[in-house]
């Protein structure tokens, strides 16, 4: 029991991301409303962003903005700054996620104009007629 607690507390960021990801995944697969599916997709993507960003964290480290002259003189204290690479990667991932959301919203608009609803069941019903 104690081992399990240690496992959860030590890797709390990974647990949080897994739980968030599962919520998002459930919404994408299980929900019948198209907007909820889209929101699920955003939660899913945010969970992955959380995982990446949290992997760059170091205890007691500062933001990775350094004085050029100090660095040239003394070099970088790697333990003193957080790893900036995951943050930079996730900036790109956020851009991707925003553009997918934008395209999806535009398509939802077209679906709404066509069928007058965003409930998957009602759309399928209208298609069946």
């Amino acid at each position: 029991m104690e081992d399990l607690l240690v496992l959860i507390v030590a890797k709390v960021n990974y647990w949080a991301y897994v739980i968030l990801m599962m919520i998002g995944f459930y919404a994408m697969i299980g929900k019948r409303n198209l907007v909820k599916k889209l929101i699920g997709m955003n939660i899913f993507q945010t969970a992955i962003i959380l995982m990446f960003v949290s992997s760059g964290v170091k205890h007691g480290a500062k933001i990775p903005i350094l004085n050029k002259y100090e660095v040239l003189e003394k070099g970088v204290d790697v333990a003193g700054v957080v790893n900036p690479l995951p943050h930079v990667l996730m900036l790109t991932a956020i851009v991707v996620s925003v553009s997918v959301t934008g395209v999806a919203l535009a398509i939802l608009l077209r679906i709404y104009r066509e069928y007058g609803t965003l409930e998957e069941d009602e759309i399928l019903e209208k298609l069946g007629k």
């Binding site: 995944f25 994408m28 198209l34 599916k37 889209l38 997709m41 899913f44 993507q45 992955i48 991707v96 997918v100 395209v103 999806a104 398509i107 939802l108 077209r110 679906i111 066509e114 759309i123």
Partner: peptide
């Protein structure tokens, strides 16, 4: 087609993620 495209977005995003 928009409905098919939306399903593709959901599936494609799962794949990419």
């Amino acid at each position: 087609a928009p409905l098919a495209s939306f399903n593709y977005i959901i599936m494609g995003s799962i794949g990419a993620c």
